[in-house]
């Protein structure tokens, strides 16, 4: 039920208008970080204040909202953001990827392919991919505007020099339409190929850093790499122990203190729908009763 003391979706209309303007600019210049006047939200920074503001600016009463945190619909962050919009916007919510029109996500892209008309909203902690190499904001902005991206490869070089391969496993830098280098938020690099040519609109909101950027549908997104160390979207070399999926991104779960572990899909909706369709993994029978 909507709490009548708030405007629809919490933010006032002028603020939503300002955010929509930033989103439109971001869509017009894919990968460019658009500054916006981020508001204080009733949650701490790092919990998705940027994503929540973008979602609030996109929501209409007919929307069906899905919120995931690391792929899961039932973790604290996802549950509280979903409740927040249930209360302040009164929109329908779902856990099924296909039914949702707006999906707010933290650190994952759903396994099920997105479709035209869906909006995927990412929560971004640090939007600047060059930040840890060049601390000056004035300098990184200049590097973006002049397309000086050699430094991004220095980071990958350092990875190979130290670990023998590109060890960056999340927030793997990408180049958008051959122009802007973008931080895809801390999604695993396994998800990077899904960024490219997606029929859905992808929006990125960073609340603390006050930046919004976007990938319009069917944008070409390329993960940076070296000729002799090509990009590799790696995942744990296992099948899901609950649903047996071989092609999904897995979480490793320690099950006791004797070294036992299981690998399960990080996308809970994907795993559940597969089990409902009759797929069973290595531990599926035993765990199936409880899940």
């Amino acid at each position: 039920m909507t709490d009548q003391s708030y405007n629809f979706a919490y933010l006032d209309e002028q603020t939503k208008r300002m955010i929509r303007r930033a989103i439109l600019k971001g869509v017009a210049v894919p990968g460019y970080q658009v500054p916006f006047a981020s508001r204080e939200m009733p949650m701490p920074y790092g919990w998705g204040t940027g994503g929540v503001q973008v979602t609030a600016a996109c929501l209409v009463p007919e929307d069906v909202l899905k919120v995931i945190d690391q792929g899961a619909d039932d973790t604290t962050n996802a549950v509280s953001i979903r409740k927040f919009f249930q209360r302040t916007a009164g929109v329908a919510t779902t856990e099924a990827t296909a039914e949702a029109t707006v999906i707010q996500t933290r650190h994952r892209i759903p396994e099920q392919a997105l479709t035209a008309g869906q909006i995927l909203v990412y929560q971004v902690p640090i939007p600047e991919p060059l930040r840890f190499l060049e601390p000056r904001e004035t300098e990184t902005r200049k590097m973006h505007s002049l397309e000086e991206y050699g430094l991004m490869h220095v980071k990958l070089y350092e990875d190979i020099a130290r670990h023998g391969s590109i060890a960056t496993a999340y927030a793997y830098p990408v180049r958008v339409e051959g122009r802007y280098v973008m931080d895809p938020s801390p999604i695993p690099k396994f998800d990077n190929p899904k960024l490219s040519d997606s029929p859905a609109l992808q929006l990125f909101g960073a609340g603390r850093e006050q930046r919004i950027y976007a990938l319009p549908p069917f944008t070409r997104v390329v993960s940076l790499d070296f000729d002799d160390h090509p990009f590799d979207p790696s995942k744990a070399p296992h099948d899901c122990d609950l649903c047996g999926a071989a092609e999904s991104y897995l979480d490793e779960v320690i099950t006791d203190d004797a070294g036992s572990r299981m690998f399960v899909c990080s996308d809970t909706d994907f795993c559940r729908s597969r089990r409902e369709a009759g797929h069973v993994g290595r531990l599926g029978e035993t765990a199936g009763g409880g899940a």
Binding site: G150, V154, Y157, A161, F226
Partner: peptide, 25 residues
């Protein structure tokens, strides 16, 4: 760049002008 290895420091200018082969850098 004090936080980057000697090799990375030397390689930075090469990468800035478009070198994309780790071995040759």
């Amino acid at each position: 760049r004090m936080g980057v290895t000697a090799g990375g420091n030397v390689g930075e200018r090469l990468m800035a002008v478009g070198a994309r082969n780790y071995g040759s850098i």
